[in-house]
Design a binder for these strands. Structure first.
Lengths: 374, 374
DNA sequence: TTAGTTAGGTAACCATCCTTACAATTGGCG
DNA sequence: CGCCAATTGTAAGGATGGTTACCTAACTAA
């Protein structure tokens, strides 16, 4: 049975508040009347909400708008995007913890990073906390909260259920950091974060988006109906260990060679052909081999794209490896192996966010957690 | 940008009403105090809601409950499941339109069917309307609404965007039938309906469920987080035309022979090996061939199961074909090609609803549309 | 018989939104 | 030049729906 939860008036209020913020965030400065039209609320209600938002310091009046029409000129109100900041941490990399201070536009104001020096477990948590503390001192405006993109399986409360490479199992990271720093903390899987970043800053289609992150490993974040898919055990997107190459495949896709043993103990996982180390070792610079990897990727993605009727698949990772024969082969394989209704509207493209996908996504966690902005 | 919609107090009321009905539907007769505890609402609010539900005739007081504990004995209230009926129509079959009258328990009270006689387009709409009219006369209790399970791509308003075999394109079926019969009408894709039936009557896990319907064609319905996945173009679940067999596959999986031409114009689609006609022609009674089909199915499902971290995959179709070597081969292939975290908790089973999946699902459309019960 | 517990109802209050009415300000038109 | 229509933002009053606090009824355990 589906368990829903009761709706209090204050929940409705919070929801409407988010709608107003959302509109200001994406639509830029607007008059109260504009906001009323956009949200469906009355001008009265919007005025009231705006008043509280101004009192909270999140929104400010800009003054009368250049009037083109008849009637009383509107006074624009705007989100004070430069007057608040948030902290983002990206733990994707094995060797270094990346941190940044961003403003509400998503502009990176400052970066800090520390080598991870092989730390794991509690020591790594401490290192993350130290990095956050440093970021707090670097911030020049009030900090709304902290977002963390972590590898591994993360639940909706920000507990890292498992991240073997980090020595983490059931680590309540959000709770620990929040207690340590006295700020709201939101933690999510790195691929999920990259997916949110694509949605918020990359202009992606929230009706059906899959972001494939290619790095040390291969992961995916999926957004349907504007929300992340989490999965029964919070392991949605763990697509790196689907078999993508078995013995018979390798006979025809010769450039790939035989299926390789994967770190997970099995053989022929997608990671063994598509992760960055595998690509560098066995395909970099060889268009044929890159195309062969692309074909394997297309074959793996075809059922997912069809089942979900996705609008976009976005690749995040080194462009010199991904954005060429690999991507093109994946795309044509995808087209060849799905019906037109599915492939017609499908985009398969590179991210426009470069290396900062997960980091920007960590920022989005805060925006969405604290302001309800997506 | 995600567009959300405003929440009025009356929406909250409707939501709470649904929560109470939901609880009564799944939990059976309960006291008002039970309902309050289950929903998180106050006893006052629940009492008020129950009063209106009694006035509407949906709920009735059963009298004092057999008291086991101290305190005033509770008076049970119950959904009047036998005193209301709903109509369900299943258009999946090429040759016959299936209809039924059900009560709110999901018990089928009466069945009616008419041969489709090759009708398509408007004539078919008329035939469906006629069938509904007959069902209305057969019903012995007030009818809450009509649910229709149709093949093809159906949008959220019950418009059939395309159903080539029925000669339908952009047919606002729900609207037409509703105008004709004066009752609320809900239309959904047949596989989606089967999926909802599995959720409501089959006790399936709404956190990650895929129902694969195998008949004339192959389709899938997917429920994540308790809601159907619809897809950008409402074509989610159209998995029958993913390539499942190419030239090189057939060399090893000899029992399947060469990839066959599919009705969609392409070659080697999942339907060409898994649809009932294909199974009957080329695999029925041959365990090796059935297992080979199961392996192809497992290969196609592995990426979907991994990407979504599904809890259950349910097969709906002729058990003599599906529930044997085919299912077992699919299951072991699925296990072999996904990582343990994914496959560990995954069930791959037959439906418990037999042939009536889509029909029962059509009934669920009404339950959920009119009462908010899932 | 009395104390304690549970169910269910009533009254007063609070939050939120809506509708209606109005002041302020502008452009266009006679 | 002055009036009207359009538009914005605010104020007052009403409707809805929830909460807390308190009351009575009916039962069990001592």
């Amino acid at each position: 049975m589906r368990t829903t939860t009761k709706v209090l008036p204050e929940d409705a209020r919070a929801h409407h508040r988010s709608m107003v913020l959302q509109r200001l965030f994406h639509g830029g400065p607007s008059s109260r009347a504009d906001l009323a039209r956009a949200t469906g609320l009355t001008r009265v209600t919007v005025s009231d909400l705006v008043t509280t938002l101004v009192d909270e310091g999140l929104v400010t009046e800009l003054g009368p708008s250049p009037t083109g029409r008849v009637g009383k000129p509107a006074t624009l109100v705007a989100l004070r995007t430069r007057d608040h900041q948030l902290l983002a941490v990206d733990l994707t990399d094995d060797l270094v913890l990346l941190g940044a201070v961003l403003d509400l536009e998503g502009e990176i104001v400052a970066r800090r990073s520390v080598p991870s020096d092989g730390r794991t477990g509690e020591a790594l948590v401490d290192a993350v906390a130290d990095l956050c503390r440093e970021l707090v001192t670097v911030a020049t405006r009030p900090v709304l909260g902290i977002g963390v993109a972590s590898p591994g399986v993360v639940d909706e409360h920000g507990t890292v259920l498992q991240a073997p490479n980090r020595g983490w199992a059931d680590v309540p990271l959000a709770q620990l950091l929040s207690a340590e720093l006295g700020l709201p903390v939101h933690v999510a899987n790195d691929a999920d974060a990259a997916c949110l970043a694509e949605l918020t800053y990359g202009g992606a289609n929230g009706d059906g988006l899959l972001v494939l992150t290619v790095g040390q490993g291969v992961g995916a974040g999926i957004v349907l109906d504007g929300t992340l898919v989490r999965g029964t055990r919070h392991a949605a997107g763990e697509i790196g260990h689907v078999t993508a190459l078995d013995e018979r495949d390798s006979r025809d896709d010769a450039p790939l060679g035989l299926p390789q043993r994967c770190a997970c103990g099995r053989t022929g996982c997608l990671e063994t052909v598509l992760a960055v180390p595998a690509l560098r070792d066995r395909a970099a610079g060889d268009p044929e081999a890159l195309a062969a990897v692309g074909r394997r990727l297309g074959i793996v993605l075809a059922p997912v794209v069809s089942a979900l009727n996705l609008a976009e698949v976005v690749l995040s990772g080194p462009p010199e490896l991904l954005d060429g024969p690999l991507r093109l082969a994946a795309r044509s394989t995808l087209r060849n192996r799905t019906m037109p209704v599915i492939s017609e509207d499908l985009q398969l493209r590179m991210t426009a966010l470069g290396e900062d996908g997960a980091l920007r996504g960590a920022a989005v966690l805060v925006l969405s957690g604290q302001l309800g902005v997506t």
